[in-house]
Each structure stands twice: as C-alpha cells, then as structure tokens.
Design a binder for these strands. Structure first.
Lengths: 171, 171
DNA sequence: GGTCATTTTGTTACATTATAACGTGACGTG
DNA sequence: CACGTCACGTTATAATGTAACAAAATGACC
C-alpha cells in the first residue's frame, strides 16, 4: 500500500488538488481500510464498505441522510440507523471523521495512525483540509494543563476561504 | 459595571468556582447586556432577556429545547423558532456562545469584547470554561496562513475532565 | 397624533439529524 | 452443533433546527 497518490501536494495536509485522480483516491481508501480491518480483526461488512466508499466519493463532507439517498439510488434503502451504525464503526476505526460544526462526515486521510485532527473548512466551496498540527495540539494541551484540565479529545474546525476560492474571488 | 464577581478566579478564564454567588452572576450578565444594547441601539426585548437569563441561570451549556421547557414553566410556551431567534440575536450580540459539539448554548463571559472563544468542556460534570487563548489562536492563524487559507472563524472545543472532577475521581 | 418603514413576534407547518428498543440472522469458537 | 457475540433489520420516535407568511410592536418623521 502506497500513499503516494494522496501525499503529492506541496504542503502537508492541504486541500485535495482539483483534478486529481479521485477514483484512485477512493480505491486506495477502501483497500487501506480492508487491510487495517484484517490486521485488527474488525469486520468491514458490505454496508460499512459502501458507506465508506460513498463518504470518500463525495470528497467533501457528506451528511448521513445524503449517504442514505445515495444508497437508495443503488437499489436498497436502509433505515437511517444502519447508516449511523456504519458511520460509528468507521469513526471507531479512524476511517472517517465527523465535522461537528456541519453535522457531516469526511474520509480520514491517515486512518493508520491514531490521531486528533483539525480541519480547515471552506465556506465557499465546501472543501476540507485535514490537519495534524502539533503547534495547535501543543497550545491546547498547554492551556488545558494550566487550568488543571485533563484533555481527552478536541474539536478544532476552522471556517474560512480556501486558496482556490480566494483566487477565484480576486479574478 | 464591575466584573469583579466573575473575574476572581486564580487563573484567567477558568471554571466557575463552586459555591459562587450565582444569582449575582446572572444579574450582572443581564445588566451588562442591557447596557451594551443601549450603547449599540439593539433591542433587548422581553423574550431575549428571558432566554439570556435562562442560559445564565443554568451556568452550564443548555439546549434550545431545555430553554423552551423552562419558559413553559414560567407560563408561556413559545414556538421553538422563538427561542432560536432569541439565541441568534444573543449570539450576534456576543452575549451567548454555541457549542457545536453539544448543540448547546452558554453565556459569554466577555460580551463587551469581540472575540473568538475556545472551550474546555468537562465530560463528567458538564461544566465549561471559556478561553481566549492567544497561543491557540496564533497557531491556528499560522497554520491556516501556510495553507493559503483565510480564516473567518473557528470552533475549538476541548473535551476532558475538569480539575474538580479529577480531584473527586482520585478520592 | 398619524403615517410609514422596519423590526420583532406569533402561528403553522415542516425539515433535518439522530437514537431507542427489540427481534433476527450471521459468524466464529469450543 | 450449541453457544455467545456481533451485526443487521424493522419500527417507531426523539431531538434539533427552519421556512413561510401574517400580525403586532417600535421608532422616525412629518
């Protein structure tokens, strides 16, 4: 398993490049998930695989009910809870992130490492960059520590305008 | 208007002290809001004032429908949208924050200054500390800048265990 | 005071997001 | 092949949040 197709951006963890090979991108995510599940003894069942694929195909945050709609297009219409159960599993495995500020889900770019991610969310085009920024994490840990607060997790979601949309706005 | 009753904790922006004069705390928030609205030419109407009072009385994040229930106890049961409209106004004015990770609302401790807050949220007791931490903000601004991303706002919500609950757990 | 524009609220209906409860089937293990 | 566990199906409902439009309150101006 190579990650080369997803790591060829100039800065680490930036926005997906427009025009990248997205079909490949989805396929990589699926096969990586299969490999990790095999390692971990977790079961990547059909519906879980389908939900993971749909999350990745969108390549932007997607809502649970949007996933449901897409599943319905493929012939079956599971109950909402089936989608949420699949998403819960995928989040436990670290294959998917949830954006609390949007009630939406997003494929994780680094499912192999246990990490707390941060997100840059473009208000204009909806695209998202996943970060693993140590300075942000350190600043949080430090500030919490000074308050005597034991950190278990965090939600860091930064709204604004992505580089592409800024360029488009200037034109 | 003095802020002394809310700024007498040993570290800045920490958790509210247990046993503080909460009635005073609510009254201060209300009178400060009234003063700011007068300055700004904004109208702190009855329902807005009531919602603000209820948010402060809880002194922990409170849901929109919990507010609705409490209003119903006081005789009237407005439609949900009335509560959301009041909350929208209070957020515009900076009197109230919303916790995206909890779908809940919280009185702002510094309504006079325009700021982006961060939050420490205790999983155990539900109490919340509001922060205005420059290192966290700087780290976010810096990382976003390196990606060419223009920051408009952020959600920073840190889950974990507050000092009081840690002490209780050790006992 | 009366008129007007604007803001706020009321009313009704609905949309969106998420979970509870319980039964059934699939799967692996001894 | 019996058992326990995990996953899924089914039904119903909870929780959160908005749209659309009418009515009332407010403030500015004449």
């Amino acid at each position: 398993m190579t990650k080369s197709t997803r790591s060829d951006t100039k800065s680490d963890a930036a926005f997906p490049r427009r025009g990248h090979d997205h079909h490949r991108c989805v396929a990589d995510a699926l096969s990586q998930a299969e490999a990790l599940c095999a390692q971990r003894g977790a079961r990547l069942t059909e519906i879980r695989k389908q939900v993971l694929a749909l999350v990745w195909e969108s390549h932007a945050p997607i809502g649970a009910y949007q996933i449901l709609e897409k599943l319905a297009e493929s012939g079956k219409r599971p109950a909402p809870i089936a989608v949420y159960r699949a998403l819960d599993f995928l989040m436990e495995q670290g294959f998917v992130h949830r954006l609390a500020s949007r009630n939406a889900f997003l494929g994780c770019g680094h499912p192999d490492t246990n990490h707390q991610a941060q997100f840059l969310i473009c208000d204009s085009c909806g695209s998202v960059a996943e970060l693993a920024d140590s300075r942000i994490v350190d600043a949080i840990a430090d500030r919490a520590g000074r308050s005597g607060f034991a950190v278990a997790g965090h939600v860091v979601e930064i709204q604004g305008t992505c580089p592409d949309c800024r360029k488009a706005a200037h034109a």
